[in-house]
Design a protein around this nucleic acid. Structure first.
Lengths: 250, 250
DNA sequence: ATAAATCATGCAATATCGTGCAGAGTCAAG
DNA sequence: CTTGACTCTGCACGATATTGCATGATTTAT
């Protein structure tokens, strides 16, 4: 790898990850830490980044999490994920279901928060690489459609956990039929996690409201909170408010 | 080869690979590095590329995904991964270790092959989403450095499997000390998988040869095959040939 | 307060570079 | 056909750049 490529990579990483850890990058690129440090030193002298002990940071820290990111990302799922992340406290055991909305939740979690995160989604687990959190991966047979662990092994592993919060993903929500999903095994897993957890919180986008899928997960009354988009029709969300569910608008 | 042909080749390589390394190209074309350097110098003066120490880069480089390609040297890992994929047969139970080389192996697997793949790496599991293969995910506490499941839960899950092939990743290989890695727990897991598997196959890039890490996985004699780059110094690979290991050059 | 990690610096080994020069090939004028 | 100008190429050599290691200083974590 050419020197200039390496420096371009450093610049790209800074944008992508918001930080560079000298030791990690040295190992990843199979170089001595001295080389990385020299790069960082030179690039800092050239005004490309800010040198800090242990690595480097971007010069203009993109005001994280709050204003700039909210301004930048107008995605509904990002907004839901951010609201969900606000509910997480250090020290908790949090179970995160699969799905793209929950992936946004992970992205919105502060990277240095000390907590334990359990998941049966390999994609969610992989996203947590740069986080300080302890990660417990639930194994099992992967259900191909939604890419989460299912089966007896997964159920057994879930039985050993008592999560404080379960962030549930479902394919449909209905005032009468509650939360439902498309696969039998998947529904069983979600039920098991919910049964173990102190609180279950559902993140739902607009198009899922009022729909029903074949397999029942749990009723609305068992949900501690429902996170939904702020710009929904009031009529649509009204039935859930009546069920005494806590509604969080994002 | 005419000069203009050579320069056209350089331009094409720049588009294809995103980089030119003067020494490599000189060797490949059986020319002196001086000639290549002169080409690069002239083409840089003509505004066709950007000259850097060691070679040249395109003027306006970045395809967005170029960064990830640059990170993995020059496709050595792809070549290793392809050779490894050739060893897999339909119907087998294959255990795939974590790591970027094994990720290339997954990419090289035919998507419609019917087999079962077990892994304790969430990243590997996530890559298998589009494959027809049945996937068994080994759960456990994620060891953060290499992002694979470790601990009692992982060991127990591994104990239920009898893989036909185990594609092992290690951080070091040494003729006397065998295969080693940097973490105690990780080594224990790898040993357990190897013990269950009919064959263990190691994929190793050049820089790992002759090095030793703190924790022992297994001896060379227990490896059914060793996949290594074809362009290695014969002296380096000789000790492993003598150990009656099957050597596959990629 | 003590240990561990990170850092800056100097040094040596290696890689790469630019320049000058010489041999080989090309081409056109003589 | 010969000659000379020109170009291309490879080699030699000193200059420069890059890298890894050792050392002692500094910072951070416990």
């Amino acid at each position: 790898m050419l020197t200039s490529q390496r420096r371009a990579l450093i610049a790209a990483r800074l944008v992508r990850d918001g930080q560079i850890v000298a030791g990690e990058l040295a190992q990843e690129l199979d170089l001595s830490e001295d080389t990385i440090r020299r790069d960082l030193r030179d690039m800092a002298a050239a005004g490309l980044l800010k040198r800090v002990h242990g690595g480097a940071l971007p010069l203009a820290p993109p005001l994280p999490d709050l204003e700039s990111r909210q301004a930048m990302s107008t995605g509904v799922k990002q907004r839901l994920g951010r609201k969900a992340a606000d509910l997480v406290r250090a020290g908790q055991l949090v179970f995160i279901d699969g799905g793209t909305t929950n992936a946004e939740l992970v992205q919105a979690l502060p990277r240095d928060m000390a907590l334990t995160i359990a998941t049966h989604s390999p994609a969610i687990a992989a996203l947590l690489e740069k986080h300080r959190a302890e990660v417990i991966l639930i194994g099992g047979r992967l259900y191909k459609h939604s890419m989460v662990s299912t089966g007896a092994a997964a159920l057994a592993a879930i039985g050993t956990l008592r999560p404080d919060i379960f962030f549930l993903g479902a394919t449909a929500i209905h005032a009468a039929h509650g939360l439902t999903t498309g696969d039998y095994e998947e529904a069983a897993i979600k039920r098991a996690i919910a049964a173990q957890s102190a609180e279950t919180i559902a993140l739902m986008t607009r198009e899922k409201f009022g729909t029903v899928s074949p397999h029942h997960i749990t009723g609305i009354e068992n949900i501690a909170a429902l996170i939904l988009p702020a710009d929904m029709e009031p009529d649509t969300s009204a039935p859930y408010r009546q069920k005494a569910v806590r509604i969080i608008e994002a």
